[in-house]
Amino acid sequence: MLKSKHLIGLENFPTSDLNKIIDTSFKFKEILEGSERKVNLLKDKTIVNMFFENSTRTKISFTLAQKRLGADSINFSSSTSSVKKGETLKDTIQNIDAMKIDGAVIRHGHPGSALKLTEYIDGAVINAGDGSHEHPTQAILDMVTLKEKFGKIKDLKVGIIGDILNSRVARSNIFALKKLGAEIVVCGPSTLLPSNAKNLGVNITYNIDEVLSWCDVVIGLRVQLERMHLGRIPSKREYHSEFGLTYERINKLKKDIVIMHPGPMNRGVEIDSKIADSENAVILDQVLNGVASRMSILYLLLADKSQKL
């Protein structure tokens, strides 16, 4: 089905696998929009969802995708587990693996934790976000949303606005968009851009209006308000004024622009409510596409060959 056994990150992920996941996602989207939303393609498969970090939409999205596919899923969150008692990641995982599971979804605050998991587990590992490293399933659902909207991703002009330095969403999106032939400009305060941004093959600007007048689609990233306390940005007011997707900015553009946001949003900081709720925003499409994409990923990584879609 796929060349890859796991989905850890998109940097080194085969483009053919990426395309296959995207294409298959559309089939699952059809199913989700139909009357019979449940398919039993992962019957008898057991998947553990390990969330060492808080999550709302990703966790629900994965759980729902598993239920729709008929898999048995177990949820594990660090706040109610033996991790609290001081158990190491290795021990926690080996214990879970000993219970015979087919796949694991992991979110963890540390970069590399998903890759680490592949050493201790026999089944497929899916990274649901490892620190500031990657969030590949978010990027895939974004690719599905873009393809749905534009029919193709090649040569699309994509602006990514905000905290690129600390964003796993930005990293995974940049890798995916590069593989699929899009052009990318990143924009944010200099203190929130990685020093190696040029090496990522993207252009940089500090002028949001420049990006907006250039791009077909803009991805707004969440400003982690704790960054302000670390002194990287002076205030919400300045961020909103200089880097916010404001109504005035979007309104004065003489073109349609697609607006995406991975959520959760800080309305009034990186995006105005009027924009988040506007016709241009595909933020809720992203959410439904998230379930379809994750079904596609789980199916392609875990289903027996006999289970034809």
Binding site: G231, R232, P234, R237, E238, E242
Partner: peptide, 14 residues
């Protein structure tokens, strides 16, 4: 820095 305390950046852009 705010109040010359060397901790929080001022709103230099504005």
């Amino acid at each position: 820095s705010k109040n010359l305390e060397g901790e929080h950046l001022t709103e230099m852009m504005l």
